[in-house]
Design a protein around this nucleic acid. Structure first.
Lengths: 133, 133
DNA sequence: AGCAAAGCTGACGTTAACGTAAACGTAACG
DNA sequence: CGTTACGTTTACGTTAACGTCAGCTTTGCT
């Protein structure tokens, strides 16, 4: 183990984001890199958080929504109030994702149907071409 | 059947969008309502397209991406070139969605794990309270 | 000492996807 | 015939999530 922290460049390469993005996430309190003088050092915790952030984004959640949810993943031993607040948020988030999953499955099967139709049309066109030749 | 078309207000109510949104989608060539004088009339085709548009949005696709895909769902008997171009786009879209589904499933199970952890913590806190009383 | 690379902090620019407001048309209602 | 409701166009405003650029430190080499 060298230092267990990444500088901004290494962090960018590891997650394929720009420095601007990392500074932006810090400003929005999604990440909390420690400082070595001026420079940012990203810890294991930051890496875990960033992974969740990027995933959340892919599912269409806003950074603000994600910020609130991150608390659940990093609950240490906060107040009961805070803890159960996070829990409720997570429940809603989970419901959201499962609804999304259901819809996604429907969309996938519909798209497959359409593609089958399209494939048939294409085969038909290919046949006509052959006959014409 | 009255007219089989909806005016802008009915369309908004049916899909829970604003008039601005519908006009915007028309400007972006996602919808093609017919005109009765000045007024827009949304056909069955527009309704089908809007349903797909809103679904696409929920999955994080841009309006421009969606516009291109809509062609697949409304391919009549275009050129073979156009047809197979749409088909290729759809293939990529499908791959995208299936990847998204896989990731979503992973995210769901991870979140459930975290919630179980949180629930345990909460139970523990409740217990302590009882003992203290 | 000199200099380039890497990082930092503002601060303004940009894009997508609409919101909002002004100014106008027209159709029905009392 | 006035006005109320609904719809239209045009145009500028807004928010999120960064991009981009200028100007300043700090650090490592030579």
């Amino acid at each position: 183990m060298t230092t267990d922290t990444l500088n901004i460049r290494e962090m960018c390469d590891a997650f394929d984001v720009t420095p601007r993005t990392l500074r932006f996430y810090e400003a929005k309190e999604l990440l909390f890199p420690i400082r070595e003088g001026q420079k940012r050092l990203f810890t294991k915790r930051d890496r875990a958080r960033l992974k969740l952030i990027l995933r959340g984004k892919r599912f269409g959640f806003s950074l603000e929504e994600i910020r609130q949810l991150l608390d659940l993943y990093h609950m240490n031993d906060g107040q009961e109030a805070q803890l159960s607040k996070s829990y409720v948020l997570a429940e809603q988030h989970l419901a959201d994702m499962e609804a999304q999953k259901a819809e996604l499955e429907e969309a996938i099967s519909e798209l497959k149907e359409q593609m089958a139709w399209g494939a048939e049309k294409l085969a038909q066109l290919a046949k006509e071409k052959t006959v014409a030749a």
